[in-house]
Amino acid sequence: MRLTELTALLHLASPALPIGAFSYSQGLEAGVDAQWIVDADSASAWIEDGLMHVLARAELPFISHQMERWHRHDATAIAAADRQFIASRESAELRRETEQIGWSLKQLALSLAWGGEASRAALGALTPLSQPTAFAFAAAAHDIAADAALAAYAFAWAENQVAAAIKAVPLGQLAGQRILVAARAVIDEAVARALRTPPDRINTFSPMLGVFSARHETQYSRLFRS
């Protein structure tokens, strides 16, 4: 991997990227409220399950195929796929999350003039816009390899889940780091699975996540927006 590619990848995966991802738990907080997540072991199981049975079947392969479409400059296919992805979100919170983070990442990409002029015009025209499509644009604009881009996205997701678990369970910092170390092999497997997934096999079927997310909308006490 070229150093320029690595630094771009670190930038995109950084928790300091100003897109607001830190304010969402993607159902984890509702899992804590329902006492599905009560300690480090159950938090680790939740996160690894999310990597293998949610991201690996939906967001990661979707990003891979959107990257290919960005490289082909196929704005029509990008827009159609993005509409389908947004429609697949299981709850109002999850839909608002992907649209808000997608919008924020779009503003950053346009402000920093990532990618070519035609690609930026196509990105700017996407309203609403999902986070994975915006991430795929950024990765393609920096000419990042698909496997590396998916690994970075998955790690950023896992890191954000760990940060949410540290606050909501709560867990100690060392317990959180153990979860992230254990997740490395799971991320490798999730990326490999995603790269083998054709567009017509992408799915977001995860009923309990949808239930927990819907419950979170009316949860009495909340730290996070999802």
Score class of each variant (00 low, 15 high):
R2F: 02
R2Q: 02
E5T: 08
T7Y: 09
T7E: 12
L9A: 08
L10C: 10
A13L: 04
A13R: 04
A13C: 04
P15A: 02
P15E: 06
A16S: 13
G20Y: 03
A21E: 12
Q26P: 02
G27T: 04
L28V: 01
A30R: 02
A30N: 08
V32C: 11
D33N: 13
Q35M: 11
I37A: 04
D39K: 08
A43P: 14
S44C: 15
A45Q: 12
W46R: 10
I47N: 03
I47G: 02
M52Y: 00
V54T: 09
A56S: 15
E59T: 12
L60E: 02
F62T: 09
I63E: 07
H65M: 03
M67C: 09
M67W: 01
E68V: 11
W70F: 08
W70G: 09
H73W: 09
H73N: 14
D74R: 03
T76P: 00
A79E: 04
A79L: 06
F85Y: 11
A87H: 05
A87W: 08
A87K: 03
R89H: 07
T98S: 11
E99N: 06
W103Y: 14
W103H: 13
S104N: 10
K106C: 04
Q107E: 14
L112P: 05
A113H: 10
W114Q: 15
G116D: 15
E117C: 09
E117K: 13
S119G: 14
A122F: 04
A122M: 12
G124F: 00
L126H: 11
L129W: 06
Q131I: 06
Q131Y: 14
P132G: 00
T133E: 09
F135P: 01
A139I: 00
A141Q: 09
I144E: 05
I144V: 15
A145G: 15
A145M: 10
A146E: 13
D147R: 00
A148I: 00
A152I: 09
A156I: 03
W157V: 05
V162D: 08
K167V: 15
A168H: 06
V169T: 04
P170Q: 13
Q173C: 11
A175H: 10
G176H: 06
V181M: 14
V181Y: 09
A182S: 13
A185I: 12
V186D: 08
I187D: 05
D188Y: 00
A192S: 14
R196N: 14
T197C: 13
T197V: 07
R201I: 03
N203L: 03
N203C: 02
T204S: 09
T204M: 08
P207F: 00
G210D: 07
V211G: 00
A214H: 12
R215N: 14
H216D: 15
E217T: 12
F224S: 05
